[in-house]
Design a protein around this nucleic acid. Structure first.
Length: 938
DNA sequence: GACATCACG
DNA sequence: GACGTACGTGATGTCC
């Protein structure tokens, strides 16, 4: 294509390549090329971003010219002006360095101009191109969100934040810097920049700088007239540091005269050469992207081979996932042949299809099996046709093997201790099969291994662990969406209504994918040193949780109904009162309408909040208003509390009582929380009210069966005890050994007051700090929690760290480890990835705090898991069942006569649960209670 | 489906 | 000086 010149009507995009790379690196988990282990995560992210950029629809706004600009070397002319410039930039991570040249290659593969010049920063090159293009009468868009480039905005130049998709024009720049783009460098010169090590004026930030520049017009005028400044400290700073400020300005000012190796014309947009682009992507072994690009370009995708290192024996090429080797089993001979295959292989990947996600209600529709990649079968047993009859039953499709015959044939295999059952979220299938053929005692599958739990042991913190996501991520395969079979929304059908020929490929694929995931993950466990965590903390949870869920807990619907009625009356009364106070009727449940009434109509203080610009009406805000004596917010708080209790608890809980068992059967997610905690859903039984008297009464509806009692045992202060152990804090450890009130001890040490006769207020503050520390405390957070001034909160924290210096050391070490390794570990070896830890900016704080919290919360989760896994054996012979787990509490149902025996046995297991893996140097203490219902037992 | 809110440890 | 600010969850109702 011949260059056609650059001028009016032309539109140049300048892409900040380095920003793309770092963004890609930190956004993605470490990824290596399969064949040789070359790190390619950042290249993958970079290519995905470029591809998204290239394929974005822009219509009229489409660029005519484009270039990606990179930094070439660390030393530039700025180091001659100021040697310390960018001196405190950390070295790029080890696994990122080899990826820099690959990103240049990627850019060329996309056929976009790739620009870098020795000795010049990307920002200056961008500036020079932008100035030239602007002077030639064209438009320029800088694709970056770097604030250092904002000085270039205006006169046909704007910016585009590639992540948020937001255009940055003069207004946005003014919003950020408080001055127009032409004065941005003046503000930056004054404020300096800690990241780039630009000194600026000490004690002056962007706000103050903008105020000064707006007052005096520009930096030179300001420095000349510095003597007129009223604030003495500020005046002296500017006078003393005038030279440093001028140097800073030279550092932040981008150079439009930077020499350029390429002409504007040469940046004209060119279509990529499919061969070159696909060749590069295949070489990088990016399966998904290669396929996507090939499809879009209408080209044949090249084979993506991850050849193993040449010295290793070649692994057999796996057949493609193409559904060709799938079989539908409809006769006894075929089923027996599959059972023989399973026996010979010694393992089987299994998946069940059912009519419902609720395992208590679900009926079995079919079973799929796989023993080797490329080959799987589906055994339909419950597909129906036609509509339901009067009893809600439809006719079975002809030709399916009888359900009971299939189950009776499979039971010996599924329970055979020599045959490994491989599944994805096996707890689901385990529960389904346990409920079948009750006359034969159900099917209790064993031994088990679970690809979802393997992924969790390896990758907790990096991503979720559902099959579709794992298949796409690790096998480069997109599964058939369930929506294609059952639809969605109102027209959704049950799986048993799906025709067998449509169901078979879907179901068989699930078994095959599971098998392939197993082959992928299993060898990684020892390499990543998570085998023990998987074997000890994950895998054994499956039957334990399945039995708890199947047991359920008895809930009295009548009690809930009575409460619902009482709440309804109370709500109606409160609503009348609220409308009266507001002077109009409105939806009390709408924060939007409430905000308008409180803050617009009544004019109460409490400005706008949040990114949506809406008023916050959260309990925090309303409590402050109520404390000032306003009645309306106080009534709203009352209404909210009752409404929550009614809707989430007394109403919703009734719908979860199983009609067959009269009990509520929650479902625990083993991989739902990043730290190793369980999560409870449908319904969530881990957040039943307890903190208020009115809420706690809901627990009265959770009752023991006839002749039984509920027993609750909970760990006392387990997270603080773990902190005392891992951070090795002598004062804390001693206090726990002596069994004294830990918060009172903390207060006594911090404020120098005796524990005896302590002011409850002081103790409350110490308690808040003790908890705050576990969460990665900040002065701001503590001040808000305690409603005290920030300075005071900060003072407490400083005193705390002074008194317990080991805590600071532990936190620093945890964060340093996370930064180096990309993960943290609990005492018991559980690994939690910390992908955001090396980010910069506001997100970094959150990642840092999460990294500090994870080993503590995670170790507590490990301990109770260890107790739960040992519990069935420890209480065998007692007429008792474990029903619920609430993070640090276990709830049992036991015959009246055995209450004390159960408490003794369970307490022994819980208090000794860390051992023998870890010998804690603080005692674990378990408190116990019992009663007719959960309120009494807790 | 996003957001705000609030229940728990 | 400024940034944004306690950790981990799930369910509900409103509003677009």
């Amino acid at each position: 294509m011949t260059p056609t010149g650059f001028g009016k009507g032309s539109h140049l995009h300048l892409i900040d390549g380095s920003a793309f790379i770092f963004r890609a690196y930190h956004a993605l988990p470490p990824l290596t090329r399969k064949s040789d282990g070359l790190p390619v995560g950042a290249v993958a992210g970079f290519c995905n971003m470029l591809w998204k950029y290239v394929t974005d629809e822009r219509g009229q706004d489409a660029p005519t010219h484009a270039a990606v600009i990179f930094d070439h070397s660390a030393k530039t002319f700025r180091n001659e002006i100021y040697p310390a410039y960018k001196a405190n930039r950390p070295e790029p991570p080890e696994d990122l360095r080899p990826q820099f040249p690959l990103t240049r290659e990627a850019t060329r593969a996309f056929n976009i101009a790739c620009i870098e010049t020795e000795g010049f920063e990307a920002d200056d090159i961008i500036a020079a191109f932008a100035c030239q293009a602007r002077d030639a009468g064209g438009r320029v868009t800088i694709v970056s969100s770097d604030k250092d480039l904002m000085q270039l905005v205006g006169g046909g130049v704007d910016m585009l934040d590639p992540i948020k998709g937001k255009t940055i024009g003069p207004e946005e720049v003014a919003e950020k810097f408080g001055v127009g783009p032409d004065r941005v460098v003046d503000v930056q010169a004054l404020a300096g920049d800690s990241v780039d090590n630009v000194p600026g004026a000490p004690g002056i930030g962007i706000k103050t700088a903008a105020q000064l520049i707006n007052e005096y017009g520009d930096l030179e005028t300001l420095l000349e007239r510095a003597a007129e400044i009223k604030q003495p400290k500020r005046r002296q700073t500017l006078i003393d540091h005038a030279e440093q400020i001028r140097v800073s300005k030279r550092l932040v000012t981008l150079d439009c005269d930077t020499p350029l190796d390429a002409s504007l014309e040469s940046l004209e947009i060119r279509a990529p050469d499919p061969q070159a682009l696909l060749g590069f992507l295949a070489d990088m072994e990016f399966r998904t992207l290669t396929a996507r690009v090939a499809e879009r370009l209408g080209a044949e995708p090249p084979a993506v081979v991850s050849a193993p290192p040449s010295e290793a024996p070649a692994a057999p090429e796996l057949p493609a996932i193409d559904h060709a080797g799938y079989e539908t089993v409809t006769d006894r001979a075929a089923l027996d042949a599959w059972i023989a295959r399973i026996r010979e292989a010694g393992h089987v990947a299994i998946d069940t299809e059912t009519t419902s996600l609720d395992e208590m209600q679900a009926a079995l529709v079919g079973i799929s099996l796989a023993v080797e990649p490329g080959r799987a079968c589906y055994v339909p047993v419950g597909h129906v046709q036609g509509s339901d009859d009067l009893f809600g039953q439809a006719a079975l499709v002809e030709g399916q093997l009888p359900l009971d015959q299939v189950l009776a044939a499979l039971k010996p295999v599924l329970e055979d201790p020599a045959i490994l059952k491989i599944g994805q979220n096996l707890k689901y299938d385990w529960k389904i099969l346990a409920r079948q053929i009750p006359e034969l005692g159900g099917i209790r599958m064993a031994p088990l291994t679970d690809t979802m739990l393997m992924s969790y042991a390896l990758n907790a913190g990096s991503h979720n662990h559902g099959m579709d996501e794992l298949a796409e991520r690790y096998l480069g395969h997109r599964c058939i969406p369930i929506k294609d079979l059952i639809g969605s929304g109102k027209s959704q059908i049950r799986f048993d209504q799906v025709p067998i020929d449509k169901a078979a490929p879907y179901a068989a694929e699930d078994a095959e994918i599971t098998l392939r995931l197993y082959r992928h993950f299993a060898p990684m466990l020892p390499v990543e040193q998570v085998t023990t965590a998987y074997e000890v903390l994950e895998r054994p949870m499956i039957p334990v949780l399945a039995d708890m869920e199947l047991a359920g807990i008895r809930v009295e619907t009548d009690t809930l109904k009575r409460m619902s009625n009482a709440f309804a009356q109370k709500l109606a009364g409160l609503e009348d009162e609220i409308h009266e106070l507001a002077g109009e009727r409105f939806n009390v449940g709408s924060p939007k309408q409430l905000g308008e009434i409180l803050f617009d109509k009544m004019g109460l203080a409490g400005g706008k909040q949040g990114k949506t610009g809406a008023f916050s009406t959260s309990a925090d805000v309303l409590e402050d208003l109520a404390a000032e004596g306003h009645d309306l917010p106080a009534r709203i708080l009352d209404w909210r509390q009752v409404a929550k209790l009614k809707s989430t608890y007394t109403d919703a809980l009734q719908t979860h009582v199983d009609p067959d068992t009269g009990r509520v059967h929650t479902s625990y997610s083993i991989t739902g929380a990043q730290t190793g905690r369980l999560a409870s859903t449908d319904p969530n039984l881990q957040n039943i009210p307890v903190r208020t008297e009115e809420g706690r009464r809901i627990r009265e509806a959770f009752v023991a069966a006839e002749g039984h009692r509920l027993v609750s045992l909970d760990y006392s202060q387990i997270e603080l005890r773990i902190l005392a152990h891992v951070a090795d804090i002598p004062a804390l450890k001693q206090a726990f050994r002596d069994g004294i009130d830990i918060h009172a001890m903390t207060a006594s040490q911090m404020f120098g007051v005796p524990v005896e006769g302590m002011d409850p207020m002081i103790r409350r503050r110490a308690k808040a700090i003790n908890f705050g520390v576990i969460y990665g405390i900040s002065g701001f957070g503590l001040s808000r929690n305690l409603r005290i001034p920030r300075a005071e909160a900060q003072q407490f924290i400083d005193t705390y760290f002074e008194r317990f210096p080991e805590i600071r050391a532990y936190m620093d070490k945890t964060v340093a480890d996370a930064k180096q390794d990309g993960f943290v570990r609990t005492l018991f070896g559980r690994r939690i990835n910390t992908p955001g830890i090396n980010q910069s900016g506001p997100a970094a704080g959150g990642a840092r705090r999460a990294a500090i919290n994870a080993p503590i919360q995670g170790a507590a989760a490990d301990i109770i898991r260890r107790a739960m896994i040992r519990m069935p054996e420890a209480i065998r012979g007692l007429p008792a069942r474990m029903l619920l787990q609430v993070h640090d509490e276990l709830v049992f149902e036991v015959q009246e006569s055995a209450v004390e025996d159960l408490i003794a046995a369970a307490r022994k297991v819980m208090e000794g649960a860390a051992e023998p893996a870890v010998k804690l140097n603080v005692p674990l203490i378990v408190d116990a209670g019992h009663g007719m219902n959960w309120a009494e037992a807790h």
